[in-house]
Structure formats: structure tokens, C-alpha cells
Design a protein around this nucleic acid. Structure first.
Lengths: 245, 245
DNA sequence: CGGCTACTTGAACGCGGTCAAACCGGGTGG
DNA sequence: CCACCCGGTTTGACCGCGTTCAAGTAGCCG
């Protein structure tokens, strides 16, 4: 697998675990589903599976892009950080999604684990080989890139023009879509901290917190604890988020 | 060519002009360069060329996605508009760039001409055919999508965390890159109005205007007229824009 | 010349950021 | 078991930046 040095800090160590595509929980969601099934063997040659602890790093800004990743469990964040520590969480990445392809030779973003996570690591040469051998693989990557681009455009509108309350409501709605939470299920788990949400929505932690309490005071949501939200009034929430649909 | 009704408003009419790939000014920049050269014939069967007047519409939010476009002259803008008229100019599209592919069946953005423009129109079936027949075409589309995604992520950081002055400086630097303006050439033409710049940078026209005059007062730029900028102090400009490189 | 649009400039307001403190749950050690 | 600490979250008070509202200016066309 990787010939590239792993992040040094012990507490963020990544551990290699056996690859088991046959039992992959997100087989039909992941990019792998675009490969002919007997190619599972090829996959197991080109791909390795690793586990990350919370805040573990998959990639760091400035490193050459040598891998891309398919998330099978947990949640990652893609983070761009400026010299003066201003931060933007470009995306939260959940099981079934693919992350790490870039138009540049060098990573401009860090990819970190929000919670304990499991990802399949594709070497860039492996990806190139799969792209060459299986048009359906490249086709899928392009479709995903187009969807990611649409998502990024949505985020741009959110960041440029929505109020903090609208941003938070849109965030909750989009997160539920991303996690494929059923419409009648009132619960959303928020594995990430307020700081990550703030840096995702272009706000401060204080404003995020105040916006949560406003939603609670208005009876739109309940907050059993900071990491769990219950939607009490779906209509009101989607009204606030309506800007982004 | 298109079986889809053209925009009705006369003043924005698009006129079909003969396709002449052999003399295309952006042949080597455009996606077409990824096709084997004898396929120019296939192109001329699948593609038509049209001219747009300023503010002419290529696509409108809500329409089904039936075409994508390669810009050969002029400048387009990709615009998302909310019900209450809040607007976000997601991107300015310049010659050599490809626009219109989406992860959705229906356009969520309008594509409009900033200046008189010429674009090559690809029917979606034509694109699908080219993607199937020519892996290099799909490969190129994916690479472009990855670069567009990186760009959108840059914009997210800009919108979320930069000051108005930093946003404007970054905008000027990025526009120069996009237009491939030589580093020693001090001039930037700004075909778009202040409103478009404001809706691109998540500001108001007033703040954009004030930021321009601040850059002028600080001796960073000169403004012979509202649509022409001269860079007087490259170092200072890139210092302000350094956040995004 | 008048009327229009786009841009610039000025003055006042208010939202979200900043700074500071309180709160809260979990973990450790005495 | 309680005291203490620590990081994350919430709440409060204040402030400044960018918006809002309004006026003024410049260029363009009939």
C-alpha cells in the first residue's frame, strides 16, 4: 500500500485493517459498484482499508496527491486553513462518498476524521488504471464530480447570501439528505463540534450556538444534547432552508 | 440542432452561426482538443455554434438540462437566484471553458452572456456519445470538473472568511489567471458590472465600489474607467489575495 | 437638453463578531 | 465520594464592519 509516510502523531494513528469488499456496508453506494463484480479481485490488489481515530488525518495541505478515498464508515471533513488560522470546512464526507481527487498535484485541503472512520484508500496509479480499464468507473467519477460541484455551488450561495438561521436550517436539511435519513425520522446526529459547523457555515461558534437556541426557542427543533437534534417542525425548518430547496 | 424552444425575448436572441472548428480560436484550450483530430467531422454533426448578445440567455433555472456549452469568445456568467432576488454569480466563464454539465436533470442556474459571446452548443446525447466513444473526452471532462470543484472550494473560503478588500483582490488575481493575462501586463478588463461582481463576491455594489476606491487610494490599482483596472502594485495586490494564493 | 442607468459617495443603523464569563458533562486524582 | 480541572457549549454585553438608505455624479442615448 502507501509508500508515503503516515502522519506522525500517535494519537491520530491510522491502522490498516483487512479489505472485505464482499461485506462492504456501502458496496452499492460506493464508486466500486461501477466496476464489474469479478473485479473485486483487482480492487483488493489496488485498494487497502484503514481505520481512523477521531481527528486522524488522511491527507494534509501541501502533501502531493497520491491517494483518494472511499468512505465506508464514520465521517470525514475536508478543511482548508489559511496562514492566520481562518478555516473553511469545505465538506463533510459520509459513507458511500468518494473524496481526494483534485485538479492539482498537491493537496490544498486537509482530510480529517470527525469520528472514528473507515476508508478504502486508492493509490492514484490504481485509480488511473481503473479509469483506463473501466469506462464505467470514470463515468461514475465524473457524475459524482458533477454532483459535488452542484453541492459546492449551493454552499457558495449559502455562504454568500443566507442569514445564520437560514444557513443552519439548510445545513440540517442537507445533512439529513446526505445521510439518507427518512423524512419521517425526526433525529439527526451531529458528530462534529460547533467549531466545525461554524467553519462550514462561515460563522462563529457563538453565532452557531445562538442560532441553535433560536431554532429551539421557536419550537423548530429540540436539543437533547449538543450532538443530537430532533426536528419538531419539519415545515418550519424547510421553510427556513427553502432558499436551497 | 436544438429541438428546445429558444428564449423568447427578442433583445436576447441567439443567432446560429456556421461552425468552423478548423479556425477555432480556442481549439487547443477547449474540450474538443481531447478528441482525435479526424473527429472534427463528428463534432460538426453533434455541435452547433451560436452567438449571444449581452445578457442573452443560454439556459434558465428550471429548464431541463439538454445542452452543455464550450465558450469560444466573450464571457458568460452562471447565476443562481433565490425567490426573493438574492443572487449568486457562481462563476464567470471565459473562452476555452466548458459549462453546463450538472448532476441534476434540471438546471438550477441560469447561464447568461456578460458580453457578446460565441459558444459551441453540445446536445446532451451528443456528449453522451462522445463520452462513450472517446475515453479521452470523458477523461478531460473529469479533469475539468475536478478543477472547477477546486475553484468552487476556493470561492467558498473566499465567501466565508475573507474581508471585502481581500475578496476583491483575490477576484482580480483569479480573473487574471483565468484569462491567462501575462504577469507583467498591468491591465485587466472587467466586462461585468459592479452588480455582478458584488453577487460573485457576496457583497453589495456599494461595498464593491468602496473597495475599488480603497485599492485606488492605496495605490494598488488605477481605475481609468469602471470597466478597466490597471495593476500598479502587483506585490500589494497579491499580498491582499494571498489567502487564496 | 432631459432622462436613464451605472457607479460613487455619504450617513446611520443593525447584525454578527469579539471579548468575557458562566455552564456543563466527563475524567482524574486525592 | 467529592474536589478539581478541562474542553466544549451557551449566554451576555459591547463594538465595528458592511449593509441600508439616500443623495450625488458621470456617461450614454433619444
Amino acid at each position: 500500500m502507501s509508500s508515503q509516510p503516515l502522519p506522525r502523531c500517535r494519537q491520530h494513528a491510522r491502522t490498516v485493517v483487512p479489505l472485505d469488499c464482499a461485506r462492504c456496508a456501502v458496496r452499492d453506494l460506493a464508486v466500486c459498484s461501477s466496476l464489474p463484480s469479478p473485479e473485486a479481485d483487482a480492487l483488493e490488489r489496488l485498494v487497502s482499508s484503514i481505520e481512523l481515530q477521531p481527528n486522524g488525518e488522511l491527507a494534509r495541505a501541501g502533501q502531493p496527491c497520491r491517494h483518494a478515498y472511499s468512505v465506508t464508515a464514520g465521517m470525514l471533513r475536508v478543511v482548508r486553513t489559511l496562514a492566520d488560522a481562518r478555516r473553511q470546512v469545505v465538506a463533510f464526507v459520509t459513507p458511500g462518498h468518494f473524496v481526494g481527487l483534485s485538479g492539482h498535484q498537491v493537496h490544498r485541503y486537509a482530510i480529517e476524521a470527525v469520528t472514528a472512520s473507515r476508508v478504502c484508500v486508492f493509490g492514484i496509479e490504481g485509480i488511473d488504471e481503473l479509469r483506463r480499464r473501466f469506462p464505467s468507473f470514470e463515468h461514475t467519477l465524473l457524475e459524482r464530480a458533477c454532483r459535488d460541484l452542484d453541492d459546492a455551488h449551493d454552499s457558495m450561495l449559502l455562504l454568500a447570501r443566507l442569514s445564520p438561521l437560514e444557513r443552519l436550517a439548510s445545513f440540517l436539511v442537507r445533512l439529513r439528505q446526505q445521510l439518507r435519513i427518512r423524512a419521517d425520522d425526526p433525529c439527526v446526529a451531529l458528530p462534529m463540534g460547533r467549531g466545525d459547523i461554524a467553519d462550514h457555515l462561515g460563522l462563529t461558534v457563538e453565532t452557531v450556538s445562538r442560532s441553535f437556541t433560536r431554532l429551539r426557542e421557536q419550537g423548530v427543533i429540540a436539543l437533547p444534547d449538543p450532538h443530537r437534534v430532533e426536528i419538531l417542525d419539519h415545515a418550519a425548518l424547510e421553510g427556513l432552508a427553502s432558499a436551497l430547496h
